[in-house]
Design a protein around this nucleic acid. Structure first.
Lengths: 330, 330
DNA sequence: AAACATGCCGAATGATTATTCAGATGACCG
DNA sequence: CGGTCATCTGAATAATCATTCGGCATGTTT
């Protein structure tokens, strides 16, 4: 009887290993095989359900904080992810991504059209979506590519992954995010390829966006935003950034030259998408988040618990004052 | 919050490790601790029952063979342990010991007096008894010590372990197993210490004994049995050995000088113990086993499946012929 | 029947996990 | 206040486990 993968044998091996606490080399002597094979038999035993490991439910979310965020800030949905003390930076993003993914997945319906921005937290989250491939989505890139050195955080790459994991197609916006000449940008907007993307964006039911501040914006980091432009944005009262659009405390896009040179979904269009989900990690973005909520840009928020705490500690949001809406940039 | 052993934290760690399939180093980043601590937290999570591992039952016994042994050989109890193909020697003993232990444990009642011999398979079995320490047994050594080099297989050592594991006291027979002069042996038998042991043996309800052949007996192996004695035993028709007593095919003790020089429980006394359990591994002892059954010495048998097969293949046991009983040696 | 797949095996090896160790921290005295 | 435990920690390391790899056996194609 050379290769014997009978359940009985798997049970023997699994029992000796898991129940009796022997090492694999010990078990190997009982089963008269090599340690390597014991390792393989154990793997098979798990697959076949002969070994079953259950873990008491861990709820990764802080429901009380979610309730507070919803009621006090008027969000439709809030997902607050627990974070271990002292977590920050990429570890924190990983936590938010890992546990936020399931919640975001639940918000996306089969056949949805999903507008998607880039960013490190979004990237993390998307990579933790379940690879079910069953939703038949249309994922559409909501913002051009930041620079030419290909980058795993770009909307381009992230969108590809999302479509691949949840199932569906990805519509990419093959243009830079920033175009120095308005004229050039407007020309691009007329391209058939680009139009298709914009039309699809207009039909999106869900959007997944990051929230940044002026200081930590990817455009500053990459040097796309020169100092004079930066100063101009500061003067215009910028408190945050969404999809390459800079907004002031009321949640209105700042009227600077920048807004005519960026290639991304217009703020006005985001407002019309019913489920715009902001994905944030860290505690230094409260102003941007509050502004985006005031401006009725984002309707849902995924955030770590410290970030949520900071948000709740921030001045309670007065009903947004919206004197006049500037004509939206494209 | 320095040392946090909350269930919630354990659940986090356990989930990431067991359910999400991350490595401990990965998990460590989430929990903001070292990999070493993750390992400890996981161990704790198992202890607390936050992680539960279940394995489909493995039945280590061959019930059909047990039934056959019982009905065809007239045993009260037969325990046949499955053995992986090709197992032999110490690995086989380990298997029989490991899985036989639970069955033997079930045969021993609280407060029993248990007579115990030595031997490698018995040793293995005893070391796998559960360390419950709750039976309040009297374990009594059924045979002297084979030689002076202390040896883990001696009844002395094995008895100590058994009493320690199941709970109870151990009564040791502090004499050699073989004494060249009958006179000396008889003197020893009169010692108060030795009498106590013999009296206790007479009250035993259970005995655990190995079965040997003349060839593989420890006495031959250790050179205790010189060639002339060996020939004498052969002439007397020895087919097996129990507790240092040599028996012929009918299960009667061979009437040689040996029987007056050995320090161990007499065959006649074994006959009177209601539960004498033979523990055997290997396929080369069928004759000894059959003789011990015919002689109504052993009433139960623990054996591996190949050994059981060999036993069943051996000539069917005619009803034992017992012309006259020789006067039992002490 | 040769040539080529395919699958399984265990030795060696690479990767991961458990344990040891030395230092840090803090509770509890004297 | 020091001392004295006791406990806890992560770095280093030892132990264990999973995977790679080449060899062998069997089955299939040519």
């Amino acid at each position: 009887m050379p290769n014997d993968y009978s359940d009985d044998r798997l049970r023997l091996v699994a029992r000796l290993y898991y129940l009796d606490g022997l090492g694999q080399s010990e078990v190997a002597k009982f089963a008269k095989v090599s340690q390597a094979k014991v390792s393989r038999l154990l793997a098979l035993a798990k697959e076949r359900g002969i070994v079953r490991i259950t873990v008491a439910d861990y709820d990764p979310r802080r429901r009380e904080l979610e309730d507070q965020l919803r009621t006090r800030l008027g969000l439709a949905t809030a997902i607050v992810i627990k974070s271990s003390e002292g977590l920050e930076g990429s570890d924190l993003r990983r936590t938010v991504g890992h546990f936020g993914a399931a919640a975001v997945d639940a918000l996306i319906e089969p056949r949805d059209t999903v507008a998607l921005a880039g960013g490190r937290t979004i990237h993390e989250l998307v990579h933790h979506l379940p690879a079910t491939r069953t939703k038949s989505l249309t994922v559409v890139q909501a913002m051009g590519t930041v620079d030419s050195s290909v980058n795993a955080f770009d909307a381009q790459e992230v969108g590809r992954v999302m479509a691949q994991r949840l199932g569906g197609s990805f519509l990419s916006l093959n243009t830079p995010a920033f175009i120095p000449e308005k004229r050039t940008r407007d020309a691009l907007l007329e391209l058939e390829q680009v139009r298709r993307v914009r039309e699809t964006l207009a039909r999106a039911r869900v959007a997944l966006v990051g929230l940044g501040t002026l200081a930590n914006s990817v455009f500053v980091e990459r040097g796309t935003l020169d100092p004079s432009m930066l100063r101009e944005l500061e003067r215009a009262g910028t408190v945050g950034e969404i999809c390459g659009r800079f907004i002031d405390a009321r949640g209105e896009e700042c009227a600077t030259a920048w807004r005519d040179r960026v290639m991304s979904i217009p703020i006005e269009q985001l407002r019309k998408i019913p489920h715009v989900i902001g994905v944030v990690s860290g505690s230094d973005r409260s102003a941007a988040i509050l502004a985006a909520i005031r401006g009725r840009i984002i309707k849902a928020l995924v955030i770590d618990e410290l970030g949520a705490g900071a948000l709740l500690a921030a001045p309670p949001p007065a009903e947004p004052v919206r004197p006049k809406t500037r004509k939206p940039s494209p």
